[in-house]
Computed example of a mutant assay.
Amino acid sequence: MSLSGYDAYREELTALAAHDGRVVCLAATPVGAGHPFELAHPDRFFGLPRAASAMVDVVSGLVTAGFRPFVCTGPARAGLGTAGSLGLLTRYLEAGATVVTPYAGFLEDYPVLRRLTGVTLAVPCGDAETRAVVREAAGADRPFHIRVGTVVRPYRSRGDLVAGAPVPVVSWESTGVCEESVCLVSVGEDGTRLARGARGAAPWLAHAHLVYLDDVRLRRAAGELGRRRRRFVVTGARHGVDGVTETLARLLPGCEVIAGPREGDAVAAVLAEVRRLKEPA
């Protein structure tokens, strides 16, 4: 049975900790609330207090001692989770922790997070991708920021996810009917849902899905995208000078890169942006 990204994260981290004593979980869930990690590894589970900033020094000490702390904010309907502000989140990352934010909405905090040196930014979709990213983060020597969804959604199986190997920088869900096809580039769960809805209405479109958005991997993804397509509509990323769409546009000179709709269930708006790029019949 498929799980939401948030539940898949909790389950996968708990399983990893059984074989890696360095993995520690700090969560907005209060101690004793039945978090699976706490039930399996109570000596390595910490509930985040309301004054969560006090835990930054704890995280820093854990990293210095050789542990790999994962800090998870509570599920949120909008923006960051209950562990606090973007400023607090960046302090955890700068201390060396991997931070997990349960929220599937558009990436309003991306321009700030991408400025952090040495942090991998990941926005997996669904159960399998989330598990693969968590495994990679647990084995990495750098912090990750992982944004996960809280709703169970149907996702296609990922045959390109190989145990022990990094998640591909570009997952091609469809290559389109010809080289001139407009390519949808989806980011995050909401963006992927919009892109799949648009392809359902216009199956000739190409669709490339991105999981990692830090500068190093986004540059690699842009190289692959540019070798295969010339016109792109990005779904799931907010507009802004340092946003995903604008960054891809800078990395793809000579290509057309435009943003999809800003919010909500707007498959028709995605198709309208495709028409702006004059998709051939």
Rank of each mutant, 00 (worst) to 15 (best):
S2E: 12
A8G: 11
Y9E: 14
R10Q: 05
E11H: 14
E12L: 02
A15M: 08
L16Q: 09
A17W: 04
G21S: 15
G21Q: 14
R22K: 13
V23I: 15
A28Q: 05
T29D: 09
T29Y: 01
G32T: 11
G34F: 08
H35K: 01
P36Q: 03
L39K: 14
H41K: 03
P42W: 09
D43Y: 00
R44I: 07
F45W: 11
F46W: 08
G47L: 07
L48H: 06
L48V: 02
P49K: 00
A52E: 13
A54C: 01
V58W: 01
V59P: 05
L62W: 08
R68M: 04
P69F: 05
F70Y: 07
V71I: 11
V71M: 11
A76S: 15
R77D: 14
G79E: 07
G79H: 12
G81N: 12
G84Q: 15
G84D: 15
G84E: 15
L86E: 08
L89P: 10
T98Q: 09
P102C: 02
Y103T: 01
Y103K: 00
L107F: 15
Y110I: 00
Y110A: 00
Y110D: 01
L113F: 13
R115Y: 08
L116Y: 14
V119N: 12
T120L: 14
L121N: 06
A122E: 09
C125N: 13
A128C: 09
A128E: 15
A128H: 13
A132M: 05
V133T: 04
V133G: 07
E136A: 07
E136P: 07
A140I: 01
A140W: 02
A140V: 02
D141W: 02
H145S: 06
H145E: 04
I146L: 05
R147Y: 06
T150F: 07
T150G: 12
V151E: 12
R153E: 11
S157Q: 12
S157M: 07
R158L: 14
D160S: 13
D160L: 04
P166F: 01
P166M: 00
V169Y: 06
W172S: 11
E173L: 09
E173I: 00
T175K: 11
V177K: 14
E180R: 09
S181L: 01
S181D: 04
L184H: 03
V187H: 13
G191T: 06
L194G: 07
L194T: 12
L194V: 08
R199W: 05
A202H: 10
L205D: 02
H207F: 03
H207E: 05
H209G: 09
V216F: 07
V216Y: 03
E224N: 02
L225K: 10
G226F: 02
R228A: 12
R228Q: 14
R229A: 10
R231D: 08
R231C: 04
V233G: 05
T235Q: 09
G236T: 00
R238H: 13
H239A: 02
G240I: 07
D242N: 13
L248Q: 04
A249L: 11
R250I: 10
L251C: 11
G254Q: 13
C255L: 02
C255Q: 04
G260V: 03
G264M: 02
D265V: 06
A268T: 14
